[in-house]
């Protein structure tokens, strides 16, 4: 009997996401049963790496089979979940998923900075966002998406914040490396341009009258373009 099919059967029947540790316990309990078979005893001391390899293979097989469900690893726990495309019917069958209210834009921005830069101090987050984040931090701490993970070895020893397992679960992530574009955002390299562009390379700046007129023009045109949301890729609802 193949290990991966035993795992498939276990995860098919499990009532909650199973971690490697929990799966190992099942194997050890099965091997310890009075009427255990030779196969069961063979898997008594199954290694995490073996389990992980089988689970990943199983997950890949389900993925490539293009079924309506897949084997997901969320925060290190494995579980069968449906594909998002089938949500409308599932909503009718099971009701809307019970989830806390969606996070605000401010909370998402703050969370993104903590997620990519952790462990990070509040001041560093404020530095990036350019605003005070006390209220937002409070919300994130209350929802247990972030937690205090230590103190920075700088003057005043400010608290350091990191994301929690609940953060991974909330966004359906396997691990922090699973964050979109993680490598790029971890330590952001910003290329310094040869020279910041001024209005006219010859002068230090444009003559005041030019500034004045362009400023007025832009102010006049504002009501027309004002309805455009500031965020790109965020088309108006009617589109």
């Amino acid at each position: 009997m193949e290990l991966k099919f035993i795992l498939e059967a276990l995860l098919f029947s499990a009532q909650k996401p199973m971690t490697l540790k929990e799966l190992r316990e099942v194997f050890s309990a099965t091997a310890g049963a009075e009427d255990s078979t030779e196969t069961a005893r063979a898997f008594k001391k199954v290694k995490d790496e073996e389990l992980l390899a089988c689970l990943e293979q199983l997950s890949a097989e389900h993925e490539s089979a293009g079924r309506s469900y897949r084997l997901a690893n969320v925060a290190g726990a494995w579980q069968f979940v449906t594909q998002p495309d089938y949500a409308p019917w599932l909503r009718s069958l099971l009701g809307v998923k019970a989830r806390p209210p969606r996070l605000s834009q401010a909370a998402l921005e703050t969370l993104a900075i903590i997620a990519y830069r952790q462990p990070v101090t509040r001041a560093e987050v404020e530095q990036v966002r350019g605003v005070n984040v006390d209220g937002t931090m409070q919300t994130l701490l209350e929802r247990a998406l972030v937690e205090q993970s230590g103190r920075a070895e700088v003057v005043g020893r400010p608290a350091l914040y990191s994301t929690t397992a609940a953060f991974l679960e909330y966004f359906g992530l396997k691990e922090l490396g699973d964050l979109p574009a993680a490598d790029e955002l971890r330590r952001l390299p910003v290329e310094r341009p040869p020279a910041p562009v001024t209005a006219d390379p010859g002068l230090a700046t444009v003559p005041p009258e030019t500034l004045q007129s362009s400023g007025t023009t832009s102010a006049d045109s504002e009501p027309a373009t004002g309805a455009t949301p500031p965020a790109e890729g965020n088309p108006p609802a009617q589109a």
Partner: peptide, 23 residues
């Protein structure tokens, strides 16, 4: 980071549409 926040928002709403198997 603003773009990253938007990505998180996509993941957030995607999670709302994923139903786990809960026998």
């Amino acid at each position: 980071f603003k773009d990253a926040a938007r990505q998180l928002q996509v993941l957030e709403s995607r999670q709302e549409s994923i139903y786990p198997r809960r026998p």
